[in-house]
Structures are given as C-alpha cells and as structure tokens.
Simulated scan of single mutants.
Amino acid sequence: MSERRILRIEISTPQAAMEAFAQTWERLERGEAVTPVESIGFESLSEMLSTLTPRRWELIQTVKRRGPTPIGELAEPPEQDKTLGCTDVGTLVDLGILEVDDRQRVFVPWDEIDLRVPLAA
C-alpha cells in the first residue's frame, strides 16, 4: 500500500521558511533521517484566503471526487465562464495542488490537505 500524500499549506514568512530549510539541510549533512514535507507557504492569512478562494476549494473537492477530469468539464453549469474555470485550474496547478496527467486531465494528487494558521507570531 502506498503512503498517504499530505500537502501542508501554512502561513509562514520567507525568513521562517529559509530557516526551516537550513535546519533540514544541516540534519541531512549530519546523516540524520528527514521526513519529506510537501508544503506551500503564504506570508499572511489574507494572501492565502485571496488565493485559495471558496470557488477554488470547491474545484479541488470536485476534482478529488471525480478523479482525473478534462479541464473543459470543470466549468459547470454550462453557462459558467470557462475562462474563469481555466484560470482557477491554472492557479491550482501552479501551486501544485492540482496536477495534469499525460492525457491533459487534472487531478488531486493529495489524500489530505493540512492547513496551518499560527495564532501568534
């Protein structure tokens, strides 16, 4: 059985992300085992919420439920602007939340998305 793929989406400053990278690098240089973490960082909650809109979360859930889906089939109902749907898909692909297979269908490669929002700086 394959391991579950979890994507961590978090609020983190670029400095904190670089420090975490440096710590991981140092652990690897010492020969310590490091568990890979696949993550996306946003500098603020407002940036995250403006990027991962309710419409885009709905799109993620739809694609996960349907499985690999041609992009043109994601603009529903039929009168919905397909350009907006393609823009949303493109943004989610650029972030790595969605991926495109060799038949040009989009899919969600994650079993779970873990959102982390710190309450204190």
Results as ranks from 00 to 15, higher is better:
Pro68Arg: 14
Phe42Ile: 11
Pro36Val: 13
Glu43Ala: 14
Ser44Cys: 06
Gly67Trp: 10
Ser46Leu: 06
Leu74Tyr: 06
Thr53Asp: 05
Gly41Trp: 01
Arg55His: 07
Leu52Ala: 01
Glu76Val: 11
Phe42Asn: 07
Arg56Met: 06
Pro70Ile: 08
Gln80Ile: 00
Trp57Phe: 04
Glu29Trp: 06
Pro77Val: 07
Leu52His: 01
Ser44Phe: 06
Ile40Asp: 04
Lys64Ala: 15
Leu49Val: 03
Met48Asp: 02
Pro77Gln: 05
Glu32Trp: 06
Ile71Gly: 00
Pro77Thr: 07
Arg55Pro: 00
Pro78His: 11
Ile60Phe: 04
Leu28Met: 15
Glu43Met: 14
Thr69Lys: 03
Gln80Gly: 00
Lys82Gln: 14
Pro54Ser: 00
Glu47Asn: 10
Glu32Asn: 11
Leu74Thr: 11
Ser44Arg: 14
Arg56Glu: 06
Arg65Lys: 13
Val63Ala: 08
Thr83Lys: 15
Lys82Pro: 13
Glu58Gly: 09
Lys82His: 12
Glu47His: 11
Gly67Glu: 12
Phe42His: 11
Pro77Ser: 05
Ser39Asn: 10
Gln61Ser: 08
Thr83Glu: 15
Pro54Arg: 02
Glu47Phe: 03
Thr51Ser: 11
Leu74Glu: 11
Arg56Lys: 15
Pro54Leu: 01
Gln80Cys: 05
Ser39Tyr: 08
Asp81Tyr: 10
Gly41Thr: 13
Asp81Met: 05
Met48Cys: 10
Gly72Glu: 15
Pro68Gly: 08
Glu73Trp: 03
Arg65Gly: 06
Pro70Glu: 07
Thr51Phe: 02
Glu47Lys: 10
Gly67Leu: 11
Trp57Glu: 06
Glu73Leu: 09
Pro68Ser: 13
Pro54Glu: 03
Ser50Cys: 03
Glu58Gln: 07
Val63Cys: 07
Leu45Asn: 00
Leu28Asn: 12
Ile40Asn: 04
Thr53Ser: 09
Arg56Ser: 07
Gly67Arg: 14
Pro70Arg: 07
Arg66Cys: 02
Arg30Asp: 10
Arg30Asn: 08
Arg55Ile: 02
Gly41His: 12
Ser50Val: 01
Leu52Glu: 02
Leu45Pro: 00
Ile40Ser: 03
Asp81Cys: 04
Ser44Lys: 12
Leu84Thr: 14
Glu73Asn: 08
Arg56Thr: 08
Ser39Glu: 14
Glu76Leu: 09
Pro70Leu: 05
Gln80Glu: 14
Thr51Pro: 02
Arg55Asp: 12
Ala75Arg: 11
Leu59Val: 03
Ser50Asp: 11
Gln80Phe: 13
Pro68Tyr: 05
Met48Lys: 05
